[in-house]
Amino acid sequence: MNKIVEMEFFSENVAKIVLEAPDIANSRKAGHFVIIRLNEKGERIPLTIADGDSEKGTITLVVQKVGVTSAKLLAMKAGEEILDVVGPLGHPTHIENYGTVLCAGGGVGVAPMLPIIKALKEAGNKVISVLAGRTKELIILEDEVKKHSDEVIIMTDDGSYGKKGLVTAGMEEVIQREKVNKAVVIGPAIMMKFGSLTTKKYNIPTEVSLNTIMVDGTGMCGACRVSVGGRTKFVCVDGPEFDAFQVDWNEMMMRMGAYKTQEHEAYEKYLKTVETVA
């Protein structure tokens, strides 16, 4: 059982959750993720760790409402408990002093990016972060990112905050202006695909962090498999970070949609039960 210590909503559908998980708080590094299961009948879903406090024994997750499990999680309150939390899983991010690193985060992808930004900064890099979202309310963790970046560029699709345009426009701006030695792109699959197409044009080595469908998260099931460099890899034990230029994005997006129909039906059913209760 893992108690929710704090629940802070960034917007209607995105919240930061601080959870008691002392062992994980102690051993986690940038890039790691956890698998959670809310209750006896819940499914197991992977969530990347956004932050951790080994003294308080807590980890921080940022969750966007996309389906039944995330909706149920966001409906929980501080003080309530999550049945299972296991981790830290995956390989931690490889950190070194590259020189100048461009960190592009889209939507809730900024959350897993935050510990990477911190670690890169600590390793002596010049960190330029680009935060992107459809609208102003979807730009998250701006202050925290600012604290650990040399520069932050905000992009919104509708121009409601920062500059108007896609994440790639912000990335181009930086690349045109100065030498970038390394890029990290984290966000929705489509954003990572186009973000890495941008850096590829300039031959900037780029890492992405994939958040595929998983069941156990320990290499056992293979639900998370993706083709990387023409070979099947398991995101849970081989990743979650990969060389962006090697990832078969179309296959990955196809696999992300494997349960679209079931997920949609389950969500509709969930909404009905919530309405009845209300």
Binding site: D23, I24, N26, S27, D84, V85, V86, G87, P88
Partner: peptide, 8 residues
């Protein structure tokens, strides 16, 4: 929920 080599 405890992975030896990871959780500790």
């Amino acid at each position: 929920n405890f992975i030896v080599g990871k959780t500790a």
